[in-house]
C-alpha cells in the first residue's frame, strides 16, 4: 500500500473547516520553507502535522499565528487572518503552545497563567486547568524557571486552555520529556481533544498516532500526504519515506498488527 501522494481522503469545505490554508508560501531569509501549502482542518478533531526536521512544521504554526510572514490565504472559522497582527489573530481564538514551551522563567506559575487569561470565562477555566494539572496549583507561587521540563510543558498547555479558543496549535509537546511525563502530557491532551480542534506537530509517531485523527505530512516545505492518521501510521513505506522512521505498527500505541 502506498499512499505517498497527496490524496485528500475527505475534503472539508472552507465553511465547515476551522482553519483553512490556501497556497501558503513562507520564506525565511534565503530559504523557501513552505511551498504552496493548502489544507483544511475539520472541527473537534486532532490533525497531526508530520515530517522530518526542517520540513516546515513549526514554520506552518508560526505563519498561522503571524510570527512569520506568509503569502497565500489563511482563514479561521471564516475570518481572514492575513490582515491581523499576532495578538489580534490570537484573540480570534488561537491557543498556541510553542516548541520549547517558552514559559516566562522569572514570573511565577500563577503570573504565567494570569498573563494568558483574556476574558471573564478564564477564571472558571483556571479551575479546570488546576484539576487537569494539580501541580500548577501547588506550585502557583514558584518561579516558572525552577520547574521541570514536564511541568513547564503543563504551563504552556494550560495557557492555551485558559480561553475559549477555536483551535489549539501544539508544537512538539513531547520534546525532551521523560517517557512517564510524555504519558501525562498525552493524557491531558486526550482529555481536551473531544471538544477542541487541535493542530499537533509531533516528532514521536507513536504519540501522534495515539492522539490524531488526521495526518498532514510535509516534506521540504510541500504537503505530500493528507488523510486518516491510522492509515498513514500503518503504512511503513510512507512513514519511512516521509519521516525517516522505521516504526513497526505494533509500537504505534498498540494499533494494528501486521
Amino acid at each position: 500500500m502506498t499512499r505517498t501522494q497527496a490524496s485528500p481522503v475527505r475534503s472539508w469545505t472552507a465553511s465547515t473547516s476551522v482553519l483553512s490554508l490556501r497556497n501558503v508560501d513562507v520564506h525565511r531569509g534565503e530559504a523557501h520553507v513552505l511551498r504552496d501549502v493548502s489544507f483544511e482542518m475539520p472541527p473537534n478533531a486532532v490533525t497531526a502535522l508530520l515530517g522530518r526536521n526542517g520540513a516546515g512544521k513549526t514554520t506552518t504554526l508560526l505563519a498561522v499565528v503571524g510570527l512569520l510572514a506568509a503569502t497565500g490565504r489563511m482563514s479561521m472559522a471564516g475570518t481572514d487572518l492575513k490582515p491581523l497582527k499576532v495578538d489580534e489573530r490570537v484573540r480570534q481564538g488561537i491557543g498556541y503552545v510553542p516548541e520549547d514551551r517558552e514559559v516566562f522563567a522569572d514570573l511565577t506559575v500563577a503570573e504565567n497563567l494570569r498573563l494568558a487569561m483574556r476574558g471573564p470565562e478564564s477564571q472558571a477555566r483556571l479551575q479546570q486547568v488546576h484539576k487537569l494539572f494539580p501541580i500548577l496549583h501547588e506550585r502557583a507561587q514558584q518561579r516558572a524557571g525552577t520547574l521541570s521540563g514536564g511541568q513547564q510543558q503543563m504551563i504552556a498547555i494550560a495557557r492555551a486552555l485558559l480561553n475559549d479558543n477555536k483551535i489549539l496549535l501544539i508544537d512538539e509537546p513531547s520534546k525532551g520529556l521523560a517517557p512517564a511525563v510524555v504519558t501525562e502530557v498525552v493524557q491531558a491532551i486526550e482529555q481536551v481533544k473531544a471538544t477542541t480542534t487541535i493542530l499537533l506537530v509531533e516528532q514521536n509517531l507513536a504519540v501522534a498516532a495515539r492522539l490524531a485523527d488526521h495526518a498532514l505530512v510535509l516534506d521540504q516545505g510541500r504537503l505530500v500526504y493528507s488523510g486518516p492518521m491510522e492509515d498513514f501510521a500503518r503504512d511503513t513505506e510512507a512513514t519511512s519515506r516521509w519521516l525517516g522512521v522505521d516504526i513497526r505498527p505494533k509500537a504505534v500505541g498498540g494499533r494494528g498488527n501486521e
Partner: peptide
Amino acid sequence: GLIIRAGVNNRSMVMALGINV
C-alpha cells in the same frame, strides 16, 4: 507591569498570548 516583565523576557510569546504589547 506583568506584561512588561514578561515582554522583557520574551516579547513574541506575550504577543502570541493575544496581548497588545
